[in-house]
Design a protein around this nucleic acid. Structure first.
Length: 256
DNA sequence: CAATCGTCCTGCGGGC
DNA sequence: TGCCCGCAGGACGATT
């Protein structure tokens, strides 16, 4: 599932491949995935592609397009059609950028007020220091640590996989209440999280189910310690519980 | 305020 | 063989 490192990987590849090219028109094949606002897209040059949390932003002239991959959204470049095609940017050079989505949870939308659109998004874990991270978590002492790490309004970009990996490496049980976790330990969660996110970006993300980059698969799955595993790196049996409807893997011995 | 559950969606794998 | 069922989960809204 695309989280911060996966979206960052896609954004970096798109930056290389589409910035500077001019979009002539956009066609929609899936009304559910492609917001009707995309009909209003005017031709223009792509000046930038960036990431905010798990969102991708395309700057086309003075227009901004917001895209979210959700579970199975992905882009393909300069090929015709293909499976699960939802929408297509047609370039003046004859090429195209396609958005596909098997499960159709993804979204592509032309936004007029990007600030308003993203006002609920918390800060990026790679752009803040540990004290802000700890402070923001400690604003919710009654909440459980895993739920809050998944809460995009608290910290943005972290999803189910990297939450579990960070908690494992910080030796924190996913069911811990934030108020019961010492500040020093919260700081270590931040340290582990940044380390893992950076390593994952260096490896083009994690491919477990459907995620692929523009060019191919990610390579971080080889570093996973608990997600989908039967044993942790120290050889203990991994347990699984459900938090907020999400599979949660942890080591009962390493994490307390 | 926090947790839980249903909803959306489709491919896939297990079971019989 | 083929079908049914449950599972995967990000975001959001309603409910507990």
């Amino acid at each position: 599932m695309p989280e911060l490192p996966e979206v960052e990987t896609v954004v970096r590849q798109l930056k290389q491949k589409v910035v500077g090219r001019t979009v002539q028109r956009f066609t929609s094949q899936d009304k559910l995935v492609i917001h009707q606002s995309m009909k209003k897209l005017a031709p223009g040059k792509i000046t930038n592609v960036e990431r905010k949390g798990k969102y991708l932003l395309f700057h086309i002239g003075s227009q901004i397009i917001l895209a979210h991959l959700r579970m199975t959204g992905h882009f393909s470049l300069d090929v015709k059609g293909g499976k699960y095609l939802a929408g297509t940017f047609h370039f003046t050079d004859g090429g195209r950028l396609n958005f596909h989505d098997i499960r159709r949870f993804g979204r592509v939308k032309l936004v007029s007020d990007i600030g308003k659109e993203l006002q609920h998004i918390g800060p990026d874990p790679l752009e803040i220091d540990s004290s802000l991270f700890v402070r923001r978590l400690q604003q919710h002492p009654q909440a459980n640590i895993k739920s809050k790490l998944l809460d995009q309004s608290c910290i943005s970009g972290i999803g189910n996989i990297y939450t579990q990996e960070a908690l494992y490496h910080a030796h924190v049980h996913p069911h811990q209440k934030i108020g019961d976790v010492p500040a020093k330990t919260l700081k270590n969660i931040f340290t582990q999280l940044q380390r893992i996110l950076r390593l994952a970006i260096d490896n083009n993300g994690t491919t477990v189910h459907n995620y692929t980059t523009i060019d191919g698969k990610g390579d971080f799955q080889q570093f996973l310690a608990v997600y989908g595993k039967e044993n942790c790196p120290r050889g203990h049996a991994i347990s699984r519980m459900v938090i907020q409807g999400r599979g949660t893997y942890y080591c009962g011995k390493c994490q307390r």
